[in-house]
Computed example of a mutant assay.
Amino acid sequence: MMILRAARAAELPAILAFWQVAAENDSRPADTSAAIEALHRRDPGALIVAVDSDEIIGTVIAGWDGWRCHLYRLAVAPSRRREGIGGRLIAAAEDRFRSFGGTRSDAMVLDANQRAHGIWAAHGYSPQPEWSRWVKALPAPETPR
């Protein structure tokens, strides 16, 4: 039986491994233990997992910065796709946003990830042509001497 819940700290290494198999990993910085641990420390409810027994079968990050609602890392186990898991994860993320007073959600979806476009469109999302995403890689902080 599948349940949706916040990820647990002990599951973070398994989630990183899950993303290597189930998530789109092109055109993005590599996921790291430090990054996922920082997310979990800052906002433990942001990383929502779909779990069947003890197996992670889906994820989404529902980031809320106090102003905007952002969705990242929607991923479903390849063997479990087309079962509605992704849609349930999106709905859970949107419920989370509404509980904070969020009024609009955006999703990070690679243009070349055609498989992902269908699920996002099916749940009411569409590209916003008047906006472009601008990015800058941040250098690591300097280590104090």
Rank of each mutant, 00 (worst) to 15 (best):
E24S: 09
D54W: 00
W64G: 03
R42Q: 12
A75K: 05
A116W: 08
A116S: 15
Q128I: 09
G63P: 00
A14R: 15
A122H: 15
I61F: 00
E11H: 11
T59I: 04
R88K: 15
C69N: 12
R68T: 11
D106I: 03
W19L: 03
A23E: 11
A6P: 15
A46N: 06
M2V: 04
W134E: 13
N25M: 13
P78H: 02
P144L: 02
A116H: 08
W64Q: 10
A107M: 07
A14I: 04
S105T: 15
E130P: 01
R80M: 01
A93W: 01
A46F: 05
S132V: 10
V76G: 01
R68Q: 13
W131D: 07
I90E: 01
L110N: 11
R68G: 06
R82N: 13
D52I: 00
P144S: 06
A22P: 10
A140T: 12
I15T: 10
D52L: 03
A35F: 06
R104T: 09
V60H: 00
H70V: 02
R115E: 11
R81E: 04
G66W: 11
P44V: 02
E83A: 02
T32V: 06
V76M: 00
A17Q: 14
L16D: 11
A9Q: 15
R68C: 06
A112V: 09
G87K: 02
S132T: 10
T59H: 00
W19F: 11
